[in-house]
Design a protein around this nucleic acid. Structure first.
Length: 171
DNA sequence: GAATTGTCACCAG
DNA sequence: CTGGTGACAATTC
């Protein structure tokens, strides 16, 4: 019996996003304007799984994630099914420990993890498959500037701006 | 902001 | 080993 991966598309003010869940939890959440290519990538990532569109079943989940994108203060209680090397899981766990509205740096994470180079952390973060819910956007360069983001620097800036507004003005 | 230099892990040859 | 490449970092203009 092959594993089943269900996916669905949602829209937000930051663009369309796709969710994919296994029977354990979320395995992917990606921004993309190109539905076809993203679904193909999902097949490629889970070659032995049955990948099916379950728009209705995931409606609740879609709404939660959409709300998390629009309102940073909202904490979606969605199960995550993180898949990666132990090192990557460690990095992603640290990302989820960053409080809303705060940022850290690649270098600081490298030190905490006992890694030699910030780039090793960067690699792991760049492989994060779950946008927003694993807040890879809360990691910036040491001088506070934003250098890159897997789903577009513009989205990263916008996410941070929203979080900072939520912290300063309470809404 | 952009360009430059230093660096380090990783990979292809 | 050599060369190329980065979601880095520090410095400089």
């Amino acid at each position: 019996m092959p594993e089943m991966i269900r996916f669905a598309w949602g829209t937000s003010t930051l663009g369309d996003f796709m969710l994919a869940v296994s029977d354990k939890g979320l395995v992917a959440a990606e921004f993309s304007p190109d539905h076809g290519a993203t679904e193909e990538a999902l097949h490629a990532r889970f070659p032995d799984a049955e990948v099916v569109n379950k728009q209705q079943e995931l409606a609740d989940c879609l709404e939660k994630v959409r709300q998390a994108i629009e309102e940073p203060a909202f904490d979606p209680t969605v199960a995550l099914d993180l898949r990666g090397t132990p090192y990557e899981i460690g990095v992603w766990s640290m990302l989820r420990a960053i409080p809303m509205g705060e940022t850290t740096t690649y270098g600081a994470l490298a030190v905490k993890l006992g890694t030699r180079d910030a780039r090793e952390v960067t690699d792991a973060i760049a492989r994060n498959p779950i946008a927003v819910l694993v807040p890879c956007h809360r990691v910036v360069k040491k001088d506070g500037s934003i250098s890159g983001y897997r789903w577009g620097v513009k989205r990263k800036r916008e996410l941070l701006r929203r979080e900072q507004n939520a912290g300063l003005y309470g809404h």
